[in-house]
Design a protein around this nucleic acid. Structure first.
Length: 325
DNA sequence: ATTTAGACCTGTCAGC
DNA sequence: TGCTGACAGGTCTAAA
């Protein structure tokens, strides 16, 4: 679900809220969410670790962990399609009560959860901080796969209905191995037109498909690849190695601006994406090309309805007038 | 060497 | 109201 802007927004929230917190223990409700090491080892390693820093690389969230001031471990978290992190204030209880009365169903579905606020009987929305009107809707938290219990009583939940998300723990000095294959960071100053150009050289597949590959540029997904191509007026089916110097320059600028704007608006929510405290991203209304089903947009340049077409199993959105082959 | 279909998963929504 | 099928922000693997 989340692409670079949504992950970056969450990383910034985490830096403001959980830096220096200590992880007391972890509850793992869906073992496959833990990629490596195996769940018991993961649990043993992480107990007592302090969160020294939170970073982002591509669509990965990185937690630097250590018992003292030196990072020992790096925890990588990838949300894939539906993963969200929620920070619960102290006092919230996890009532691991199966929705189904049949315990045998747990092995395939995993248990479903009910959350109760500190003041019992209170239903969502629950006001957490009055000035921000943030809230948690317990209905949104019913797919908890992993729960980090912090020493101060707060809980960091990884909620992930489709179970595609992955959390891994690596020795700090093997971070490169954990993130192998990721291309350049599009918001770093190292990401120049020349870098983009060299990444596309020799790739004759459709530019849309090449942009989605994380080794080309890290962090672009279906929404922002479409947005960038729309702004740059490049048809998604253009062979990646066929772009002119001017088109490369436009695409580079479009990638940077599209991602930057989305971060400003807290990411794009069209259904499931939420911030750490349940906030909705406000970028959907600022998208120019991407739309959810039944909600067609029109090109702001020429007024044509935005077209959609499946390219390499993903739906691409573009203006058929402004983005020609 | 690429491209593509299938897996992994559950929820939601449109249409009948 | 209920069923069926299509579709969803991602990525890996095996087969063509």
């Amino acid at each position: 679900m989340p692409e670079l802007p949504e992950v970056e927004f969450t990383a910034r929230q985490l830096r403001a809220l959980v830096l220096d917190a200590t992880i007391r223990d972890v509850q793992i409700f869906w073992e496959r969410t833990i990629g490596t090491p195996d769940a018991p080892t993961f649990r043993a390693l992480i107990a007592g670790q302090r969160i020294l820093q939170v970073r982002r690389r591509g669509k990965y969230l990185l937690f630097d962990l250590g018992r003292a001031d030196t990072p020992e471990l790096v925890m990588t978290l990838h949300r894939r399609m539906t993963g969200n992190l929620y920070l619960l204030p102290p006092g919230w209880e996890i009532d691991a009560q199966a929705r189904t009365a049949n315990p045998a169903a747990w092995s395939t579905r995993g248990p479903d959860f009910r959350y109760s606020a500190p003041d019992s009987g209170q239903d969502a929305p629950v006001l957490v901080r009055e000035e921000e009107a943030s809230y948690y809707d317990p209905a949104e938290l019913s797919h908890c796969r992993v729960c980090f219990d912090l020493l101060d009583g707060r809980r960091l939940l990884f909620n992930d209905p489709r179970k595609f998300g992955r959390i891994e723990l690596w020795p700090a000095d093997r971070e490169d191995e954990a993130l192998a294959g990721l291309g350049p960071e599009p918001l770093s100053t190292d990401f120049t037109v020349d870098v983009l150009s060299s990444r596309l050289a020799g790739r004759k597949g459709p530019i849309k498909t090449v942009l989605l590959a994380q080794e080309t540029v890290a962090g672009l997904g279906n929404i922002y690849a479409d947005e960038a191509l729309f702004l740059a007026r490049i048809h998604p089916l253009r062979p990646a190695n066929s772009l002119s110097a001017e088109e490369l320059s436009r695409l580079h600028a479009a990638i940077v601006s599209v991602l930057g704007m989305a971060i400003e608006y807290g990411g794009t929510t069209f259904s499931g994406y939420r911030g750490l405290q349940g906030e909705l991203g406000e970028n959907y209304d600022h998208l120019k090309a991407y739309y959810k089903a039944g909600d067609v947009k029109h090109c702001f340049r020429c007024g044509s309805p935005i077209a959609s077409q499946v390219i390499a199993q993903r739906t691409a959105h573009f203006c058929p007038q402004c983005q020609t082959l």
